[in-house]
Simulated assay, not measured.
Amino acid sequence: MDTATHFAFGFGLAGLSFVDPAVASDSTTALAVMIGTVAGSQAPDADTLIRFRGNELYVRHHRGMSHSIPAWFVWTALIAGALKLAFSAVPLGTLVLWVFVAVVLHVGTDIFNTYGTQAFRPVTRKWIAWHIIHIFDPFILGSHAIAFALWALGAVPPAALFPGLYALLAVYYGWRSYVHWKAERSLPALDPSHREGDAYTAIPTVNWSVWNIVRKNREGDYAIGTLRRGALQWTDKYVCETSPLIEASRRHPAVAAFLSFSSHPCPQEEKRGSYTIVRWVDARYQHRKQYPFLAVVKYNANKEPVFSYVGWISEEKLERKLQGAPPHSLPSAAGR
């Protein structure tokens, strides 16, 4: 989820913690738990700092080990331990419980969006992304905002207010999961060009009645469209190409990082004078006829990489980088 939503969950858990007698009976404990739940709701995304070491590492590792099973306990121990040092009278068990809930809730909500996490590492290194909840969901953020207003005004005590909020959100997540399952199940029948072997992915938008649709054809190409109130419309297609250079590009660090994350990769090769550009896009992330999450490698006439980039970027900015890339720039400097 986006940072604001994680913050909302952190403060919401602080309100929910008032069901715990240790929190409800002591203002110092309540303050410590609030700090812990807010910190715990943000901690797994601390790996965003990897970006300063380059896009290749960032794409490969963001939402990876920091969201894994061992990390749940590491973040909890670090945050609860620091809070125990600052608030020595607060029960350690109370801190551990609520910080752990905040960390796990962060990871759990991330699984429901399109980007996903390696939440079950080291059991599996697979990226788990269920494509059910948009990364920014107005209902989730809005329901928290209403609850916070009622809490601040003293209209409803937190021990009654926040269990109701999270019961509502549990129902909401269940409903969205069902709607997503129903949407994907309906796609073959709605698609007149459907063939055996085609695979569909429904991707959420901020509009409940609209899904972005990706169909992977049995040949490996992609069709992109929308499902709007039960009507399917195809709007674009992306043809995946093969060549010796495309295959060789898989070993480039930028492409390898991209492929370690992308579940819908599609490559194309483009000749530009004496240069050849190999571009890999993730077909899930189309925006205004562009595919902003990609890996690109520019090769010279000797098939040597002279420029590369991996990450999120607009077509205009990428084009400026490709045109302005120095003819002998080092691949390791690309995307920094």
Rank of each mutant, 00 (worst) to 15 (best):
L227E: 11
R228Y: 14
A71Q: 04
D110K: 02
L294C: 13
R121N: 13
N302P: 13
L57T: 14
S186V: 04
L95C: 02
I133E: 10
L57A: 12
R284V: 06
F52P: 03
V297M: 01
A43N: 12
L85F: 01
W98P: 14
T114Q: 08
N212V: 12
E316P: 07
P192H: 01
L190F: 01
P122C: 06
G10C: 08
H180P: 10
C240E: 01
A170N: 06
V107F: 08
Y178A: 11
V281I: 15
E316Y: 09
Y285C: 10
Y172W: 04
W175A: 14
P91A: 02
G12R: 01
V107Y: 08
H134E: 05
V297T: 02
R215F: 02
L232K: 04
S66H: 05
A149E: 11
K216W: 07
Y309D: 15
S263E: 05
L97F: 06
F9H: 09
G54F: 10
V59G: 14
V23P: 06
V310Y: 00
N217H: 05
L97Q: 08
A82F: 03
G335Y: 00
G197S: 01
A159H: 11
A325M: 03
V171K: 05
T226R: 13
H61A: 15
R215P: 04
W234T: 00
A22I: 04
D236W: 07
